[in-house]
């Protein structure tokens, strides 16, 4: 069991997400930074999509009832295991009863904590991913709080002999090139024809600031307006990375908890490999969009 002593600002359970329910209006959910999420799982010997904690801005305090192996990837925090600092992007042995405490956040927005064996809550529509607006998935569809006790799977060599697997590192060159000013590559369309050439140029040459209204549903940006030729379209399907433009011309990049359909023109879709860069941006950080070269 993983015991939550303090939930932090917003800590949710996420796994690889829900597949097959979008036609019923259910978003995929899952981690915003898929690269850090995957790295944390692989460091502790889990399947790449096993359930983890997604930690936002202010980290939680946890306690392990049994000795285990954890890894934290993504945003950089001061992490204390007992009285010792533990590094990010490493597998770390935690003794039974020891506290794992997140201190100061050094950079980034979201960290992922994996534990060997993976979190083992009851899936909802085939997934443990938390979808806060629907109030389902994860633990009772909500953010974690003090007093929560999370079951951990124990079907791996890593969870049976956690100390033997400690100290493994995710190499720096394999981590996303995080920066507060990322360039996000986009594939134009499907409604790029809803914009004039001038509007498309504005979109591809301006800087956009992440606003505080952003959440797991979408990154709301502010900058040079990209006004669509029409106020809306007949609703069609949306994916994570879809860049919607409401009539005010301020882009919204749809994220894991996105609505499955939308009636604003979608000028482009952000490349999947670049969504983790956006996931780590804080309000005030600035992004730019560039056309992705064909492969």
């Amino acid at each position: 069991m993983l015991e939550i002593l303090d939930g932090g600002f917003l800590t949710t359970i996420q796994d690889a997400g829900r597949v097959g329910w979008a036609r019923f209006g259910v978003p995929p959910s899952g981690p915003l930074d898929t690269a850090a999420f995957r790295a944390a799982n692989l460091l502790v010997g889990n399947a790449p999509g096993a359930a983890e904690l997604e930690i936002t801005l202010t980290g939680p305090t946890l306690r392990l009832r049994r000795s285990g192996l954890i890894a934290v990837c993504g945003a950089e925090f001061e992490i204390w295991v007992g009285n010792l600092r533990a590094p990010s992007w490493h597998s770390v042995f935690v003794r039974a009863g020891q506290r794992v405490q997140f201190g100061k956040r050094l950079w980034g927005a979201r960290a992922y904590l994996a534990i060997a064996g993976g979190l083992a809550l009851k899936p909802f529509l085939g997934s443990q991913a938390t979808y806060l607006p629907g109030g389902f998935g994860g633990l009772e569809g909500r953010a974690l709080q003090a007093g929560d006790d999370l079951p951990v799977g124990d079907a791996s060599a890593y969870s049976a002999h956690p100390a033997a697997y400690a100290g493994r590192v995710w190499p720096e060159r394999d981590r996303p090139a995080y920066t507060p000013h990322p360039i996000l590559r986009v594939i134009l369309g499907p409604q790029d024809d809803a914009f004039t050439e001038a509007a498309l140029d504005t979109f591809l040459t301006s800087e956009y600031e992440l606003t505080a209204e952003s959440n797991r549903m979408g990154a709301r940006l502010r900058g040079a307006p990209v006004i669509p030729k029409m106020a809306g379209i007949v609703s069609d399907g949306v994916v994570a990375g879809s860049v919607q433009l409401p009539p005010d011309g301020q882009p919204i990049v749809m994220l894991a908890d996105h609505q499955t359909t939308g009636g604003y023109p979608k000028i482009a879709t952000v490349a999947r490999a670049d969504l983790p860069l956006l996931a780590q941006c804080l309000p005030g950080d600035r992004v730019q969009f560039r056309r992705k070269d064909p492969e």
Partner: peptide, 9 residues
């Protein structure tokens, strides 16, 4: 039409 790298409409 492509919708990013993992979907078509």
């Amino acid at each position: 039409a492509p919708v990013g790298e993992a979907a078509f409409t």
